[in-house]
Design a protein around this nucleic acid. Structure first.
Length: 425
RNA sequence: GUGGCCUUAGCUCAAUCGGCAGAGCACUGGAUUGUGGCUCCAGAGGUUGCGGGUUCAAGCCCCGUAGGCCACCCCA
């Protein structure tokens, strides 16, 4: 029989990994609530058109990385895809459920797996987890700053000190087309100097040439016209106001004129979070931006919006790299062990009694001798062992304090009260 | 999609020139039938990623393939 394994680019989160994720998810949920964002859940797959129209058919995410879903029978004409990100699906839900009639802005948050068919690499998986936060219906600029501050707080509270905010404005329909045309002209004049790999982008997406990592491009990019100088008055005003708001709440950021985002729906504000010193690798810890045209693109009324997505896998990785303490799972309060290895029913009954009282209790249901059972209890980091033995005949058990290495005989019907008192002094 | 390195027990790794596949950790059991992380003993655990080839003989050499890691690309 061939070895069965998790698909390429996916992974099992074993309890220790899962505990680290759970901690981040708890933090995300708490912060979302504190900032007035409510949780939403959308399907793991959508009609492919949601992404093709929303994200843009010419983007890498849609063109190369979409996981298409083909049903084995029935509905063959449906074209579905696993979600590569959350924003498009959330905006689809906004339109579908008439959220424009809710008090604006509609502030939503989602935590869950995303899927991209890409070659796996350090910190890059085909199934990965994001915390996604969206504010739909507020043109900003204050909400832009609020959202960036929220993202920065998440990293700080998670224990990552050296996260840097990169900020840019990439214009809007009033000014970006002219800029893109100018940029295309500029690179076309220098076409001979472009590396082969980059030349194809001249026609498809000249903006992407700006964040090329090819060192031979550095001088060319540095001399290229910048969007910052070509923004229309409205975008200039918006960008300045976002910066002013960020300054006011004490967020340090770096304006990065070459920052463009890979999804077509972004307008004006664009930002990314990087570990300091790790820029340039595929080590973005998160990113987001404004998408004032997206809701309309998906069939809704013209509605502004802004959001970000943080990669939980990468945050866990960054925490490990930073030498953070591993997250430990809660130890049981007590382990029920027995002198008669065969009496699993007795141990199970006493454990159930304690669990009825709300205590976290493990029962050693193995057939091994008492010494081994106690050894196991200690290794589970339990504080107490309830030892079942001959005393049971008179309705008593030994309650052993594993930390103090002492024990005493207690009547079974006082065990719950006693343990509760010790656990919650 | 492109390139480089790698793959032996659950994990980390040995195995001389091509000559009987091993250790540590972890796991299970035992050490005078009721007491601790230690110690000692034992057990279990392998199609050496997979498929071919060369050879009397392949973990080792050759070809293919899958997977992992790293980089490009892209992004989280």
């Amino acid at each position: 029989m061939p070895t069965l394994r998790a698909p390429r680019g996916t992974r099992d989160l074993l309890p220790s990994d899962r505990a680290a994720f759970a901690r981040l998810e708890r933090l995300a949920r708490d912060l979302a609530a504190r900032y007035g964002y409510r949780e939403i859940e959308t399907p793991l797959f959508e009609q492919a058109a949601v992404f093709e129209r929303g994200i843009g058919a010419a983007t890498d995410v849609v063109e190369k990385e979409l996981f298409r879903v083909v049903p084995s029978r029935g509905e063959e004409r449906e074209r579905w895809a696993l979600r590569p990100e959350a924003t498009a699906g959330i905006c689809r839900a906004y339109v579908e459920h008439g959220m424009q009639t809710w008090p604006q802005p509609v502030k939503l948050a989602l935590t869950g797996p995303m899927f991209r068919y890409d070659r796996p690499q350090a910190g890059r998986y085909r199934q990965f987890w994001q915390w996604d936060v969206e504010a739909i219906g507020d043109p900003g600029p204050a909400v832009d700053a609020e959202l960036i501050e929220l993202g920065a707080r998440f990293y700080r509270d998670a224990g990552l000190a050296d996260v840097e905010v990169l900020l840019n404005s990439i214009g809007d329909p009033a000014c970006r087309p002219a800029y893109v045309a100018e940029l295309r002209d500029y690179f076309a004049r220098h076409e001979a100097e472009l590396p082969d790999a980059e030349r194809g982008r001249l026609a498809t997406n000249p903006l992407r040439l700006l964040d090329s990592k090819d060192p031979t491009m550095a001088a060319l990019v540095a001399a290229a016209p910048t969007i910052t100088d070509r923004l229309c008055d409205a975008c200039v005003g918006h960008f300045a106001a976002v910066r002013a708001h960020l300054d006011r709440v004490g967020i340090v950021y770096r304006v990065e004129p070459s920052l463009v985002r890979g999804l077509d729906y972004y307008t004006r504000t664009a930002f990314e979070f990087y570990r300091r010193g790790a820029e340039g690798q595929q080590q973005a810890l998160g990113g987001g931006g404004r998408y004032d045209g997206l809701v309309e693109l998906l069939g809704g009324r013209p509605t502004p919006g802004i959001g970000f997505a943080l990669g939980l896998d990468r945050v866990v990785l960054a925490l490990e790299a930073a030498g953070a303490e591993p997250v430990t799972t809660a130890a049981p309060i007590a382990v029920v062990v027995g002198a008669d290895p065969a009496d699993t029913a007795g141990r199970l009954a006493v454990a159930t009694l304690l669990r009825d009282a709300g205590l976290a209790v493990h029962a050693d249901l193995s057939g091994r001798r008492l010494g081994r059972q106690l050894e196991g209890a200690v290794r589970e980091r339990a504080h107490f062992a309830v030892i079942l033995g001959d005393e049971l005949a008179e309705g008593g058990v030994q309650l052993r304090d594993l930390d103090a290495a002492s024990q005493k005989l207690v009547p079974l019907d006082e065990l719950v009260a006693l343990l509760r008192r010790k656990v919650r002094p």
